[in-house]
């Protein structure tokens, strides 16, 4: 088992009342899974993803990632954990505008201990694998949306994570570009990478092996 959530709840206070964003989530993921989280707007999909990605806190419950109890870890420890095992793909790509494709790809490696030559070869591998060698010195604004997301995926993969978290990865893309990204995900999954994606689209959902439906912060 890669990770497990037990009775996880998250709430905010609004007008003196507790408003639950997530309530009593019980949920586990095995290595090699390809999970789609579905649900209408405001059902808590992204919140759940962020909690899994350790970018966000929760108020109650337990979260175990590779035998580590995330809820009781120190911030620094937690950062080390997700740095090592998790890669993120965002809907709005979130590439840094002032950096070239190559430099964007290199960034996650900077926060780990890699030598310069290692970084160079890893970046070169990734450029090769995604067929974007020719674009390595361009800035994000010089690329199409699909190409930007390709770089986004490449960046998520460069540190060879066990788990990829994708928040509506195709939300800003046209259907053809979307399909390409989903094909890549499928391929990655076949190579052994666990994937959790948040999506609205039935079509994307079909790529996954398991579906979790959220409604008002609860798993249906």
């Amino acid at each position: 088992m890669l990770l497990q959530l037990k009775n996880v709840s998250k709430w905010v206070h609004s007008g003196g009342q507790k408003v639950f964003l997530l309530k009593d989530i019980n949920f586990w993921v095995n290595e090699g899974d390809f999970i789609s989280i579905m649900g209408p707007s405001g059902s808590g999909k992204s919140t759940l993803l962020n909690i899994i990605g350790m970018l966000d806190d929760f108020n109650e419950g337990e979260y175990t990632f590779l035998e580590e109890k995330v809820h009781s870890l120190k911030e620094k420890h937690r950062a080390n954990l997700y740095k090592q095992y998790i890669g993120f793909v965002f809907q709005a790509y979130h590439l840094i505008d002032e950096l070239t494709v190559k430099e964007n790809l290199e960034m996650p490696l900077l926060y780990k201990k890699h030598s310069a030559s290692e970084r160079k070869s890893l970046v070169a591998d990734m450029l090769d694998r995604f067929n974007i060698v020719g674009k390595k010195d361009l800035f994000p604004s010089q690329l199409s949306g699909g190409q930007q997301q390709l770089v986004g995926v490449a960046r998520a993969l460069i540190a060879s994570p066990k788990l990829i978290l994708a928040d509506e990865p195709t939300g800003n893309l046209n259907s053809k570009q979307g399909e390409e990204i989903m094909e890549i995900f499928t391929q990655l999954n076949k190579d052994g990478v666990t994937i959790i994606q948040v999506t609205h689209s039935e079509k994307n959902m079909a790529y996954g092996s398991r579906v979790i439906n959220l409604l008002d912060g609860k798993i249906e």
């Binding site: 950062a79 080390n80 997700y82 740095k83 993120f88 840094i96 960034m107 996650p108 780990k112």
Partner: peptide, 16 residues
């Protein structure tokens, strides 16, 4: 902000 957010998500420490 985006730069900061991305860096943090990719595992940059606050001190960095």
């Amino acid at each position: 902000l985006k730069e900061i957010g991305v860096k943090r998500a990719l595992g940059s420490k606050r001190t960095t």
